[in-house]
């Protein structure tokens, strides 16, 4: 049986809310970035933008949002399709494996993002 143990907050409402809040943050971030890029930006301007603290915080928020958003989304996909119900015993094994790979990747990505942003 699939359980809620591995869900982000173990509460449907919180997950649902986090999903929506992170979506808004990501939307804001990407719209902002897109507008900068479309307006034409030189390396120095780009560099100085990311030197400002508020931008570092904004980017970090976006990175964390992406991780949370991705986890909740992928968790939903895995618990839909990689289940004992659909695949037998190997469903559980597959799901745990995919969840491990996903969580590991997300952690690595977040650390990497922090390194880039704060370096």
């Amino acid at each position: 049986m699939v359980t809620a143990v591995t869900s982000l907050s173990r509460s449907g409402l919180s997950d649902w809310l986090v999903q929506r809040v992170t979506a808004v943050i990501l939307l804001a971030f990407f719209v902002f970035i897109a507008s900068k890029l479309l307006g034409g930006v030189s390396y120095l301007e780009w560099r100085s933008l990311f030197d400002q603290t508020w931008m570092k915080v904004f980017a970090l928020m976006a990175a964390l949002s992406l991780a949370a958003h991705a986890w909740i989304g992928m968790w939903g996909v895995f618990t839909d399709y990689l289940t004992e119900r659909l695949l037998g015993n190997k469903g559980n094994l597959l799901r745990i494996s995919f969840q491990l790979i996903t969580s590991l990747s997300l952690v690595i990505y977040v650390i990497w993002a922090v390194q880039i942003i704060w370096s």
Binding site: A4, R10, S11, G12, G76
Partner: peptide, 10 residues
């Protein structure tokens, strides 16, 4: 009783 990740939020 409905506030888990499955009952409603699927």
């Amino acid at each position: 009783r409905l506030d888990d990740p499955f009952s409603v939020f699927r």
